[in-house]
Design a protein around this nucleic acid. Structure first.
Length: 383
DNA sequence: AATGTTGCCAACCGCGTGCGA
DNA sequence: GTCGCACGCGGTTGGCAACAT
């Protein structure tokens, strides 16, 4: 059944909203709630259609909207979810509670898509472009099929969860994934053994993280409590390759080539997605360990002789499940309260001498990635 | 300084879905 | 089961600002 355009009526205004219109809408909704959107414009004295009012409210005027630059965590979450859900912006938006689907969609189209393309990754398939024409009889094809299968499974689960989230917001259910996660993560003796499935978006994440950071966490957390950088160099022991991965990173196994010590505190991700220090020297994947080194150095987990101290506690934390990590990533305060404790639970790092929200964010980011990446597919219901 | 180009984002459009009559 | 209303969603566009020539 067709539908006539909602703004067909003559005299209804279109285009940008004026501050006066915003104020009218805001005041009306604050006093009466939106009720029926169709009836709202007349009641509020606006020459707009109900749909236009709804959009203005949900995308701009709503008080719980966070505006401005997307954080690294948010970017990562969007990429992860896009890999699983595709262009289902509203579903993605449920995991970034303060962002609107429209904003996420715009950000994807104007920033993230381009950056992934630049990195040689197809933003639609989330696969490296040079892998696209491979034959179907290969082991790779089997992996791809598994990935697809897992993606479907994960996608369905996320959808259900998004629904649950919505219901939760409406007070329909008490289920709250974040609370659930926090409950678990705040109990030091409770180590949940349920392993989440390997993530089909892992390759993209690795490329993303490789573009501006570290490589060695998985092996470190599993096998050692301390590692030694001898004379400022280290052989990276990257072992992050997932069983289902379609992407190889041979370059990250190269010897660590550190930036000058005086620049350590100034390594930041640069425009290209790689790392850059304050001398504008760029460090690529090969040098990705530099960031890890820098972060640990700054946070006090590398000692005078360049020995890296890895907290034992790292190996004991297992996230309850993937979505908790995502929700977690989207909640800045919770994140600081919980993951900050996570990395410093062995007395390493702590508040960090580096200070600053950026570092704290990065620490949390890598902790969550660490947990995401270091999961075995054996616990997955898919296999 | 003037003009053209590009990037960004708010807003619009039209289809799909849920739900009550 | 069908119809029609209301709303939600994803794709697209118009217009402004920033940047390049």
């Amino acid at each position: 059944m067709g539908r006539s355009p909602c703004c067909e009526k003559v005299g209804l205004k279109k285009g940008p909203w004026t501050p006066e219109e915003d104020q009218k809408l805001l005041t009306y909704i604050e006093e009466h709630g939106h009720g029926s959107w169709r009836a709202l414009p007349a009641n509020a004295g606006l020459q707009r259609c109900g749909k236009s009012c709804r959009l203005r409210w949900t995308n701009y005027l709503r008080p719980d909207i966070k505006r401005g630059k997307f954080s690294l965590q948010e970017e990562q979450t969007i990429i992860q979810l896009h890999a699983l859900l595709g262009n289902r912006w509203s579903a993605i938006a449920t995991h970034l509670p303060k962002r609107t689907d429209n904003e996420i969609k715009n950000y994807w189209n104007t920033h993230l898509k381009k950056r992934l393309t630049k990195m040689g990754i197809d933003p639609m398939t989330h696969k490296p472009k040079h892998h696209e024409g491979l034959g179907s009889g290969s082991g790779l094809a089997r992996d791809t099929a598994n990935i697809s299968h897992m993606a479907q499974w994960e996608s369905a689960r996320l959808e259900a969860e998004a629904r649950l989230g919505k219901e939760s917001k409406l007070g329909i259910t008490n289920a709250n994934p974040l609370q659930h996660h926090l409950m678990i993560s705040s109990s030091p003796n409770l180590h949940v053994s349920k392993a989440p499935p390997a993530l089909p978006c892992l390759d993209v994440l690795k490329a993303w993280q490789g573009a501006w950071s570290l490589t060695t966490k998985s092996t470190i957390r599993d096998n050692v409590n301390s590692m030694v950088f001898s004379g400022g160099s280290m052989t990276a022991v990257d072992d992050l390759e997932s069983p289902t991965s379609t992407l190889n990173f041979p370059h990250v196994n190269n010897a660590f080539n550190p930036p000058p010590m005086q620049n350590i505190n100034n390594i930041v991700p640069c425009e290209s997605g790689l790392l850059q220090d304050n001398d504008n020297v760029t460090y690529g994947y090969t040098d990705a360990s530099a960031a890890w080194f820098a972060h640990n150095y700054r946070s006090g987990s590398i000692d005078e002789e360049d020995n890296v101290i890895v907290p034992t506690g790292l190996s004991s934390m297992i996230m309850e499940d993937f979505t908790d990590v995502l929700v977690y990533n989207s909640e800045d305060h919770q994140q600081n309260a919980s993951l900050g404790g996570h990395i410093s639970e062995n007395g390493v790092g702590g508040n960090g001498s580096c200070g600053g929200d950026g570092f704290e964010e990065n620490r949390s980011y890598w902790n969550s990635l660490l947990d995401l990446v270091d999961t075995s597919p054996s616990g997955s219901p898919v296999f």
